[in-house]
Amino acid sequence: MIQLKGICKSYQRPDEGPLEVLKNVDLSINEGDYIAIVGPSGSGKSTLMNILGLLDRADSGEYLMDGDDVSELSPAKLAKLRNEKIGFVFQQFHLLPRTNAIENVEIPLIYSNADKPEERAIGALKSVGLGNRMKHFPEELSGGQQQRVAIARALVTDPELILADEPTGNLDKTTGEDLMDLLQQLNADGRTIVVITHDENLAKRAKRTVHIDDGRLNELRAVAPGSNASPTETQLGGAA
């Protein structure tokens, strides 16, 4: 579904030389994958997430989405791809205040041509177990419920890929577990998921774990879907 080949990204620092954040990263994401990207702070996780989510561009390398190179597309085309193919979940939920659950979930549909947006939003909320909180404002919902609204918002356009950045980072242990169950459920239903996380428990639930350190990627554990084979350490890229 998505192939990253030789992705490099560096940032210009004011007084020092450029900071290389991603160094020749290769990553292949297949349909039905559930990948955890783990790594210390400053390792380039967020940059990788932004590039994967088409929010940022790599300096060099190839990004193939469904076989098409998207690295040179215009900002407007990228926005359309984000709308159609990617659902985002953030650590801080990023729900709009004074805007109820349905209205929050509808937001991606403003920028698509989908009909019956309200019905779709209601459907998405029901699928994350919030059928009874649809008219609630974020201020009236618990953290776990807010993150579920955010997941419904990510699901409402029926995207191929869910990108979640520390989705349990702002949740207590129990709510975090519930959310992990939900993500696992979504994956079991066929949804491709990539999470960036510090949370080892969350990483353990993924089928594949990719470690990123100093801008380089290593796959720590790759489990074939449905199998219980023990983790094998492989250098990605060549293997993919």
Binding site: G53, L55, A76, R82, N83, E84, H94, L96, I107, I110
Partner: peptide, 11 residues
């Protein structure tokens, strides 16, 4: 968030 979920700048 609007941009992330697909809003173009002109929108």
């Amino acid at each position: 968030i609007r941009k992330a979920v697909g809003a173009e700048s002109r929108q």
